[in-house]
């Protein structure tokens, strides 16, 4: 365990929210869920990306979420605060298909070597245990636009092959995503509380790109069920700043999501 980690004064969700925020460019249009991506997006709007636009599957274009009033669903009115437009969910999701969205964010219960995400069934879909909440707009996002997956870094979540593909990453690797009919989008990054992955340009397998402060490559590997690609030149993420943490805690004072 590194020095930074021993001295760390932030939670896993805070770290994930900060890392999420930093990959959102100013002026971009992003598609997010509530929780970490929303905290990250709102943080980005306060710091480096005031022109960032958030879309929610509930049908919401460009809201500004109020501190202390974080929504608990992408499909409720709190999520629509100070929005520019409210649409039918079908039409807001169609913006993904039309190509208006730069980055979509998803989570899930499992992720595999080709960045496929499962949020539907653990075990066989014929006899699952447990049956999970399901896709929502997750499949639409990952099928249509460049996607960033946010995932706690745990062995049970990082499995060689997911039990069920809810949201396709690179399917079976190589060109199989395109061959399946998914000719746009793909997983850009996977952000965990230990590191950042992207997918190898040829094999499409997960590839460790950057380690978070104080995290060793062994810690990354020990908490995965398969071995990802590991390049020689690993980057190190900058730790969350005091300002980033302060804003996050102001947004979520009762720690609904900042667990």
């Amino acid at each position: 365990m590194g020095k930074h980690q021993m001295n760390q004064t932030y939670t896993t969700s805070e770290l994930l929210s900060v890392m999420c925020s930093r990959v959102m460019p100013d002026g971009a249009i992003i598609f997010a869920g509530v929780g970490v991506p929303l905290l990250g997006a709102t943080l980005a709007q306060r710091l480096h990306a005031p022109k960032l636009t958030i879309l929610f599957e509930g049908g919401i274009i460009g809201p500004f979420i109020q501190p202390g009033r974080l929504p608990s669903s992408t499909n409720e009115m709190r999520t629509a605060e100070k929005a520019n437009m409210l649409l039918n969910p079908t039409d807001v999701l169609a913006l993904l298909q039309r190509g208006y969205v730069d980055i979509g964010f998803i989570g899930g219960a499992q992720i595999d070597q080709y960045a496929n995400v499962n949020s539907s069934y653990i075990g066989s879909y014929r006899q699952p245990a447990p049956r999970l909440p399901g896709s929502g707009g997750g499949n639409d996002i990952s099928s249509l636009v460049e996607t960033i997956v946010i995932m706690p870094h745990e062995k049970k979540r990082f499995v060689e092959n997911v039990d069920f593909i809810t949201s396709p990453g690179y399917v079976a690797g190589g060109n199989s995503r395109k061959d399946a009919g998914l000719i746009s989008g793909g997983v850009l990054k996977v952000i965990t509380n230990l590191c950042v992955f992207d997918c190898d340009a040829v094999t499409r397998r997960l590839c460790v790109r950057a380690l978070h402060p104080g995290v060793t490559i062994d810690a990354v590997l020990d908490n995965m069920g398969f071995r990802p690609e590991i390049p020689d030149d690993l980057e190190t993420s900058e730790p969350p700043t005091g300002e980033e943490l302060e804003i996050l805690r102001e947004l979520d004072p009762t720690r609904i999501y900042l667990k």
Binding site: E57, T90, L93, N139, D140, S143, A180, L182, S184
Partner: peptide, 28 residues
């Protein structure tokens, strides 16, 4: 998928038997 159900109601509203889409392929 969320959009799929929305498009299925829309196809129903349009009086056509289906709508083509680019989602749900490659998934389980």
């Amino acid at each position: 998928s969320h959009m799929s159900l929305g498009m299925m109601y829309r196809a129903g509203a349009l009086g056509i038997p289906f709508l083509p889409t680019r989602v749900m392929m490659g998934s389980g």
